[in-house]
């Protein structure tokens, strides 16, 4: 049992309103919070950590200090890139950014505390092919999937599926040539459009799974918060992100076999938080689509009332999943 009132470290950007929800719950519980963005290092934040039975020392940001050995848990949300002083050369900035990343994060991720989630585990679980492998192994029934840069393989897959096929990205963060970050929703594939540009990178194709509705399942420790997402338009039926205005939500129960599979999947990746997406077929079968190890949940709490922020605050305050 950890001593009470150890500090919760929150790593995220300043305008992260979802993290605000958790910080407010922690404040209500009088739990010390040290929130900072990696963007502040090294220009605004300083760290001095010395090895000796773990890392001792601390961080300072403005008027605030963090004793490293007082950290009971860490909430890794959406911290920004390290920002280097503009006054130094590009080469110096690159060097400084790499050293800062390895030094600061290297110390923080090795602290003896609960991470929600440890960024290394997040990174592992972000590989969608790996997710699908584990999901299949634990019985969560992902769609038939092809990952390829072979146009012929893509065309054969589309033919063999004998039904609609969708394309979905393997990684996010797409920035177009105009420098603008853009989205890429799931899209139904035109088999005649499967051309040789498939050869230019890895692509993910899946069978279309007919759906009654989708479920966004948010897992916090051993607590499950499931919300049905019902599409109200054709666009939203393909990908609910296409038309939020048409969506309606209902709180859902999670079938026991799905719950067992999700627990196993989370354990396999070492995750204590996850936002999972499922299709629920007209026959009521849950089919795994993906897990977002650092997924958004604020809007689900807003539209359903599911107490996700409270669960996160409790977990962070406890500092252990047991």
């Amino acid at each position: 049992m950890r001593s009470p009132n150890r500090t919760v470290m929150v790593l995220t950007s300043q305008p992260d309103t979802t993290a605000d929800l958790v910080v407010r719950k922690l404040n209500e519980r009088d739990v010390p919070v040290f929130r900072f963005d990696t963007t502040a290092f090294p220009t605004e934040a300083t760290m001095a950590a010395q090895l000796g039975g773990g890392w001792g020392g601390g961080m300072r940001l403005g008027e605030r200090e963090l004793e490293l050995d007082r950290v009971g848990s860490a909430y890794y949300r959406r911290p920004g890139e390290f920002a280097m002083p503009a006054s130094i050369s590009p080469a110096a900035r690159r060097f400084a950014a790499a050293q800062s990343r390895a030094g600061l994060l290297g110390v923080l991720v090795s602290l003896d505390c609960l991470w929600v989630n440890h960024p290394g585990r997040n990174a592992d679980a972000s590989y969608k092919p790996w997710q699908l492998t584990v999901a299949e192994h634990v019985g969560l029934r992902p769609p038939r999937t092809l990952i390829t840069n072979d146009p012929d393989a893509a065309r054969r897959f589309a033919k063999d599926i004998d039904g609609p096929v969708i394309y979905k990205t393997l990684a996010g963060g797409v920035v177009d040539d105009d420098g603008v970050p853009k989205g890429m929703p799931t899209s139904v594939v035109d088999p005649d459009g499967l051309d040789d540009s498939i050869a230019l990178c890895a692509h993910q194709f899946q069978e279309w799974v007919d759906k009654q509705h989708e479920v966004r399942l948010t897992v916090v420790g051993d607590e499950f918060f499931a919300a049905e997402i019902h599409a109200g338009s054709d666009d939203a039926h393909v990908d609910w992100r296409n038309d939020y205005a048409s969506l309606s939500y209902e709180i859902a129960d999670v079938p026991d076999d799905v719950r067992r599979g999700v627990v196993e999947l989370m354990r396999s990746f070492g995750l204590v938080f996850g936002a999972l997406d499922f299709v629920v077929t007209p026959a009521g079968e849950w089919r795994f689509l993906e897990i977002n190890p650092n997924g958004q949940w604020g809007w689900i709490e807003t539209v359903t009332g599911l107490p996700i922020a409270t669960a996160l605050a409790e977990l962070l305050q406890r500092g252990t999943t047991t």
Binding site: S13, D16, K168, D239, E290
Partner: peptide, 26 residues
């Protein structure tokens, strides 16, 4: 306080196509 009025947090990710991925310094 300068960021408090911002509405830039993306609460609208998910779905079949994957997460909106912010730059992750890790």
């Amino acid at each position: 306080t300068e960021a408090m009025a911002s509405e830039t947090s993306s609460n609208n990710d998910g779905g079949q196509a994957g997460e909106d991925t912010d730059p992750d310094p890790y």
